[in-house]
Amino acid sequence: MKKVKVFAILALVAVMVFAMFGCSSEAPAESSTPAESSQTAEETQTGSDGEPWKIGIVVKQMGAPYFDYAAEGSKKAAEEMGAEIISYTGPSSEDVNQEITFIEDLITQGADAILVSTADSTAIIPTINKAIEAGVAVFTFDIDAPDSDRLFCITAGDAVESGTAIGESIVEQTGGEGQVALLTGGLGSDTLNQRLDAIEAVLADYPDIEIVATEACDDDFEKCVSQVENLIQTYPDIKAFAGVSTVNPPAAAMAIESAGKTGEIISLGIGLPSQCSEYVDSGTIPELILWDPGVMGYDAAAAAINYLNDGSLPQDGQNFGEYGGEIIVPEGTTVGYIPSIIFTKDNIHDYEF
């Protein structure tokens, strides 16, 4: 396996060259600022054996359009920067044990870096730490494992901020009263749980809003549809469903419209425009919150490649180019955020993901 700190060797070579030629050459240009440090394919380095850096992607659910878009972004970054995506894999339904197996396989295959979005932020910790100990650069994206030794996380919007935005949307759309149900992907996700907690914190200030249930579907679309259908039967006066995973809003909207409740019950939360546009048009989903998963995948791969090249981690305001854009890195953290987008009838058809 190639060492990730090849930059140390390059630095030594640079010192030797400088010693040979002295100070007669022109002074070097100043180093770029974080906002200018996006690397191009021409500038990229490779491993000690001259081969492209090998990167694996492990997601919590294969077949989900959200992660497919993210993977396409990662592949774009790798192509531009001269790296190679050797694997894009994950379980067919959320299963952290399968994710663990996939990560261990990538370690054995000699991956230089692994990008991980996990179904369980705690259970994955020993395996991420094992990869780091083996010399693999592990970056999380979308769903973090903050207590692991992972190097950095690229995600979208602070989980508390996005959850707060969903809670405020519930208040606005319901007029501050009525029964609502909360929906999530998996209860083992630290990020999703933070969003749920933030929604509940907002609604706690509105005593006329009653949270009647919180359901986890493990990011299974059909399971979520069934859960919403049952909740509509159990709570005939329910006014809204709010989901913190991209599966939730379109699944809830489908169940609402199948029950003939269009105009009576709404669906809100985190969702893909491509999966939700028809429901936004019908008014069943008045608005959505999301980000571009392709940009997230791009920035995660670019961050990993930069680290492999020179040992650097993303900085606040760092620019990953025309596609990747700038990220926000709060001081003292190893988490970078890409901006969120509010989708309504006015703009949802402007996006392809």
Rank of each mutant, 00 (worst) to 15 (best):
E257Y: 05
T262W: 04
A252P: 10
G269L: 09
A252M: 04
S267M: 03
E257K: 06
K261S: 07
M254A: 12
I256D: 00
A259H: 08
Y279E: 12
S277M: 13
A252I: 11
G269Q: 08
I266Q: 00
G271L: 10
S277W: 14
S277Y: 14
C276Y: 11
L272A: 04
S258V: 13
A253M: 11
P250V: 09
P273Y: 03
G269P: 11
Y279Q: 11
G271I: 13
I270Q: 06
A253K: 11
A259T: 12
I266D: 00
C276K: 04
S277N: 14
A253I: 13
T262G: 12
S258E: 14
S258D: 15
E257D: 14
G271H: 06
A253V: 09
E264F: 07
K261L: 14
G263M: 09
A253Q: 10
I256C: 03
L272T: 02
G260D: 05
I256R: 02
A259K: 12
E278L: 04
A259I: 13
I270E: 07
Q275I: 06
G271S: 13
I256Q: 00
E264R: 03
I270S: 01
S267P: 03
S267C: 04
G260A: 07
S277V: 15
Q275E: 15
I266T: 10
P250S: 04
A253E: 06
I256V: 06
E257I: 13
S267H: 01
T262L: 09
S258A: 15
A252T: 06
A259C: 09
E278Y: 01
S267W: 01
Q275C: 01
I265T: 12
L272W: 03
G271V: 13
P273D: 00
E264S: 12
Y279S: 11
A255I: 11
P250F: 04
I270T: 08
S277A: 15
Y279G: 09
I256M: 01
I265H: 09
A253F: 07
A255T: 07
L268M: 06
A252K: 08
L272Y: 02
G260K: 02
I270P: 00
I265N: 08
E264C: 10
G269M: 12
A253L: 11
A255N: 03
I265L: 11
L268R: 05
A259P: 13
I265K: 06
L272G: 04
P250N: 03
P273W: 05
I265P: 06
A251I: 13
P273H: 02
S277H: 13
A255F: 09
A251G: 05
C276T: 13
T262C: 02
K261V: 07
G263V: 10
